[in-house]
């Protein structure tokens, strides 16, 4: 197992899949000659050429649609949308074409595209580059949504997404591309469904995904060291479908749930996880579940305001303490 960065993991998955199958292509803005805004396709242009590593014009909806159309005939495009804030422009093709075509055609046609895009608050990128959008994607029937929290997941989820016959949206994070972590040396296919227990605990479950898994892990350490509270951390790397069984299993063990999300609370992952808890294991609860979420504001530019607009590990600790001791 080598330690590599998140972006290197994504790049490696691209490279392996492109070397294996000449119908795997990469598309997006500045991903070719320039090597990609996040280096996720670095060097691939030189290796695979302009027909397979495609620098697109700034036409998000249509180049996404073009990838979808190519996938109808067996091509496996990996499409990079530079920011989920720009993914709104491609929503028509993702929602109306990719996600619905299998159903509308009675199973005749599928759109096995992979769409990768980072969202999230980074370093003062302002309101139009910092928003999260996973809540929109996870409400779409016919689309899978995964969100890697580590280089291993970034690698393994992309490998599986390329091979899977469904359209898959991979929600990445602006701040995580330089994160280091161990990735298996051999090929590894991460399951597209399910969840992972990142830390075992007995007192409360912290549900996180993508970057909020890390806030949850930090919070769990503080809770353990300073308060003697053992938190379990569950990584919801699959946002659609959510792992109902996994959510239930952990809540049935700890009897308390805190959902940690970088996005705003309304209509979000937290709301959905709470609904699942309600539906599946309400009577296992010792306390009402809570969400630790972003404020309902367009992300501010000012650094202090920016930080205040999204949660952190301290907020998670505070939420757990309030839940357990009522303080």
């Amino acid at each position: 197992m080598a330690e590599i960065m998140y972006w290197e993991a994504i790049r490696r998955a691209h490279d392996e899949e492109m070397a294996r199958d000449p119908l795997v292509i990469a598309m997006g803005e500045d991903i070719g000659v320039a090597g990609g805004t996040y280096k996720a396709t670095k060097g691939l242009y030189d290796k695979y050429g302009p027909e397979r590593v495609i620098d697109t014009p700034i036409s998000e909806n249509s180049f996404t649609g073009l990838g979808i159309g190519a996938s109808f005939l067996g091509v496996r495009p990996i499409i990079e949308l530079m920011s989920v804030n720009f993914a709104w422009l491609a929503m028509d093709q993702i929602f109306n074409s990719a996600a619905k075509v299998r159903y509308m055609s009675g199973g005749q046609l599928t759109a096995p595209v992979v769409i990768r895009s980072p969202g999230g608050t980074a370093h003062q990128l302002g309101a139009q580059h910092s928003a999260r959008m996973e809540k929109v994607f996870m409400g779409i029937a016919g689309l899978r949504v995964v969100t890697p929290s580590s280089p291993k997941q970034a690698y393994g989820l992309l490998k599986s997404a390329v091979r899977c016959n469904d359209p898959v949206f991979i929600n990445e994070h602006e701040l995580m591309y330089n994160m280091k972590g161990e990735v298996p040396d051999g090929e590894y296919f991460h399951p597209l469904e399910g969840s992972e227990v990142t830390r075992q605990g007995r007192d409360v479950t912290l549900f996180g995904y993508n970057i909020s898994v890390h806030w949850s892990m930090q919070a769990a350490e503080i809770l353990s060291k300073q308060h003697g509270i053992e938190a379990e951390v569950v990584d919801l790397y699959s946002l659609s479908p959510l792992d109902r069984a996994g959510i239930c299993e952990s809540v049935s063990k700890t009897h308390r749930a805190v959902i940690v999300e970088e996005a705003e609370a309304p209509v979000g992952v937290g709301a959905e996880v709470m609904a699942i808890i309600n539906e599946e294991c309400f009577f296992e609860l010792d306390a009402a579940p809570v969400r630790v979420s972003a404020k309902m504001v367009p992300t501010p530019f000012n650094h202090t305001l920016e930080k205040a607009s999204i949660p952190n590990a301290k907020d998670v600790v505070a939420a757990v303490l309030k839940m357990i001791s009522g303080k």
């Binding site: 119908l23 909806n61 249509s62 190519a70 109808f72 093709q93």
Partner: peptide
Amino acid sequence: PLAAGMAKAIKM
């Protein structure tokens, strides 16, 4: 764009 995508696949 779907048509252009199919054309891309044909070409490949």
